[in-house]
Design a protein around this nucleic acid. Structure first.
Lengths: 217, 217
DNA sequence: CGATTTTGTCACCATACGGTGACATATAGG
DNA sequence: CCTATATGTCACCGTATGGTGACAAAATCG
């Protein structure tokens, strides 16, 4: 037999195929990290021919851009505000806000995977996520300034940037290691412990008058 | 002419070649990131045939391992202690120690590049560096416990892990971005500002009795 | 229904990768 | 000096990558 090979035709549905491709991107990021996302891998994972990726998204960067617009990669500022809105003091607002941030990040493993890849993988996807992060930070700072009185000498942007950076980095690392600097970072219970210290750090950074008294030895 | 092609022989010197290969690894990490280190790239960069890499180091992982033993990737605990040894209080010791940490990390761009690649690039090199970090943390914690009295409720491991994580991550990110969360992270001057907040956070985390008094709205 | 556009399939290209075998010759040991 | 080993050179392999051209058939539109 010359084996006509029954090539099993496929229902033609541009929209469905496009979605399958974008879904495959997400699955690949999750499974193999952002560096595992390539034309061939995506086509294979999506069960679509790679030529369709080029037709629909232009090239790999176009795919990244399209995927960046697809997902729900961050909490929104509104969500943040409603989640923290009833805090009486700035300190309580920051504590609740950073807890909210950590909880929301843990719900978005794809975002964590992208963050993990950020430093070495400067694709449009990571650039897009960075832009969102910066815009959101500015928004949040404006809201904080409007709602709370900031103690003199307190540097709210530096404070939140430091703690958010630590949270994001440690959550991203927790995908592959269990301990960082002798501290467990894997389970929610571990993070309860960590947040006790974060709360104290926030209190310190907001302490109204740091006496600066130096003792000489 | 049949062009005998003058193949330009090379002086044979195993030691020198080996060193050239390891040097090439460092240069490549610096220029292209850890993911830019491959057999072909290293051979090209070192001006040596790749078969020599296999002969001398086994395979790519062996190369990583050999390179991990080559470099001075971290400060030593002794250096840390002499740099901080005269601090009168635990708070001052931690402030000085973390400043020292940041300064030493900034002197080691290769280490920063490896840290940047850590989350997605689990080569023996990053594993080796992680092990050093963990050992060093334990060492340091022991020394601190022996020298200073730790206030009740203060979690020194969590405190140092959080701040060190933020420093390492932000320094690694500073290689490719200028601002994180609205805060400049590039120049030493930027870091002076950041360290003001770090100092305050340390004070807060070491504050002896956090009253926990909540105000209701 | 018939013509045109769109979707999907396949075969191909050049390039790069990690890895290996065969061979020449410079060096070191007897 | 002659021999054995170690060093370096070259040509190859299979596999994967990003990317393109050609073609068949399904869907759409007149």
């Amino acid at each position: 037999m010359v084996t006509k090979s029954t090539p099993k035709p496929k229902r033609r549905d541009r929209e469905k195929t496009g979605r399958a491709i974008l879904d495959a991107v997400g699955r690949l990021i999750l499974r193999d990290g952002l560096s595992g996302v390539g034309i061939n891998a995506v086509a294979r994972e999506a069960g679509a021919d790679k030529v369709l990726i080029y037709r629909y998204f232009g090239d790999l960067d176009g795919l990244y851009r399209a995927y960046a617009e697809t997902g729900d990669f961050w909490w929104t500022v509104e969500d943040m505000l409603t989640s923290v809105g009833d805090a009486a003091t700035l300190a309580e607002a920051l504590k609740a806000g950073l807890r909210f941030h950590a909880a929301e990040m843990r719900k978005r493993p794809v975002t964590l995977a992208v963050i993990a890849a950020e430093p070495e993988n400067r694709t449009p996807l990571v650039v897009a996520l960075e832009e969102v992060r910066e815009r959101r930070s500015l928004d949040l700072m404006k809201n904080i300034a409007a709602r709370y009185e900031v103690p003199e000498g307190a540097d709210i942007p530096a404070l939140t940037a430091l703690i958010a950076a630590a949270i994001d980095y440690l959550l991203a690392r927790a995908r592959s290691i269990r301990v960082y600097g002798g501290v467990d970072i894997k389970t929610p219970k571990d993070w309860e412990r960590i947040f006790v210290t974060i709360d104290a750090m926030i209190d310190g950074a907001l302490a109204p008058a740091r006496p600066k008294g130096r003792k000489r030895s």
